[in-house]
Design a binder for these strands. Sequence first.
DNA 1: ATTAGAATGATAAATTACTATCATGATCAG
DNA 2: CTGATCATGATAGTAATTTATCATTCTAAT
Lengths: 124, 124
Amino acid sequence: MQARVLSAVISQSAAPLSIHELLEAAKTEVPGLGIATVYRNIARMIAAGEINAVVIPGQPPRYERAGKPHHHYFYCEHCGRVFDLPGCVNGLRQMVPEGFRAIRHDLTIYGACRNCESHPVAHL
Amino acid sequence: MQARVLSAVISQSAAPLSIHELLEAAKTEVPGLGIATVYRNIARMIAAGEINAVVIPGQPPRYERAGKPHHHYFYCEHCGRVFDLPGCVNGLRQMVPEGFRAIRHDLTIYGACRNCESHPVAHL
DNA sequence: ATTAGAATGATAAATTACTATCATGATCAG
DNA sequence: CTGATCATGATAGTAATTTATCATTCTAAT
């Protein structure tokens, strides 16, 4: 059953995965896996609240297990990987104008990850 | 000349505008304005460094005048408008793992703007 | 084993954002 | 005015992502 494999791949990934990253990763266990099945199961898992979509501006959505503690993301502009950043920043409250109501926020830090910083390669 | 009108609309807008918001706004001055002209002029203004693209995750790009002081954005989930939030947060440095190099960051706060908070309407 | 219903994979179609093309119209130097 | 060039608007085409369709396969209860 592909649903179980897809769910396991997402749960075991340290970073959120895109549809294609998920397809490739799951193919090692289910070689014939089709992209339609990935989309179908992602939709079902989102509806069930098992996973959340993570959107890095200008990139296709990635998905990660729901229920993690509050965190943000680091996007490596060299290798295109996304890393979780535990914790949050201070002073968010002060940024919200009087009369506005803040519900949630997204923070993405861009740069080079440890690997790309120590082993420089061409940009993607 | 449409370039002048488009440039003026962006400069005078308090918030970044999408291609369609810009088209609609500029049509009040140039009724027959075509979307191709908007795309062409946006591309030229970006190349000239006059404007910057602003991407709210999951939304088409918006554009605003370049050279503003560092700021972030508030996205109203009721009316879909984007507002500038001057300033920044503290503690960004501490979120970046050892060995990673941060170059820039995006912060978007989601919620209800003053108008939608005081005059509740249906979601878009 | 049989059968009904659900899941799957391949692929067509839809959606959205953007780019290319091209005939027409504006601009301007001479 | 005249011709050259450049911008414009309409629209076709492209690219990327997502959804719909459908025949086949799998699953499970009997």
